[in-house]
C-alpha cells in the first residue's frame, strides 16, 4: 500500500504498459524486439497481481507468490526463445519477421 496513491492510478499505469507491449509485439519487425515486447506485457501483469494482493487482500499471499512463478516462467521462456532465434538464425541467416512467413496459404 502506497500512501496517497489509489489503486486506479496503478491500474492505469499497468494498463498503459500492457498496451505498449502489445503495440510493440504487433509492430516490430525484428524477432528480438518482439521478445522485448513480450517482457513488457509480462511485467505489467506481474505488477497487477502484486498490487491487487497488496491493496485488496492484504492478509493473503497468493498474488505475491504467484508473481514469483510468473517471473520464473518468463525467464525460462525467454531463454528458450533466444535459443530458438539462434537456431533459426543459423538456418536462414536472418532474424527478420518477414523471413519466417512460410507457413501460409
Amino acid at each position: 500500500m502506497i500512501a496517497g496513491i489509489s489503486i486506479y492510478e496503478i491500474f492505469t499505469v499497468t494498463s498503459i504498459l500492457f498496451f505498449i507491449g502489445i503495440y510493440g509485439f504487433i509492430t516490430r519487425k525484428n524477432l528480438i524486439s518482439v521478445l522485448i515486447s513480450i517482457e513488457l506485457i509480462l511485467n505489467a501483469s506481474v505488477v497487477n497481481f502484486v498490487v491487487i494482493n497488496k491493496y485488496l487482500y492484504p492478509d493473503m499471499l497468493q498474488g505475491v507468490i504467484f508473481s514469483i512463478f510468473i517471473i520464473a516462467v518468463a525467464a525460462a521462456e525467454t531463454a528458450l526463445a533466444v535459443s530458438i532465434i539462434i537456431n533459426l538464425y543459423r538456418q536462414i541467416s536472418s532474424v527478420e519477421v518477414k523471413d519466417t512467413e512460410i507457413m501460409k496459404y
Binding site: N43, A74, T78, V82, I85
Partner: peptide, 19 residues
C-alpha cells in the same frame, strides 16, 4: 536479479550473436 541481471544480459548476448 533475474530480469535485469539475467534476462536482459541474455537478450544482449543474442543481439550480439545475430546482429
Amino acid at each position: 536479479t533475474v530480469y535485469a541481471g539475467g534476462i536482459v544480459v541474455l537478450i544482449i548476448f543474442s543481439v550480439l550473436l545475430v546482429h
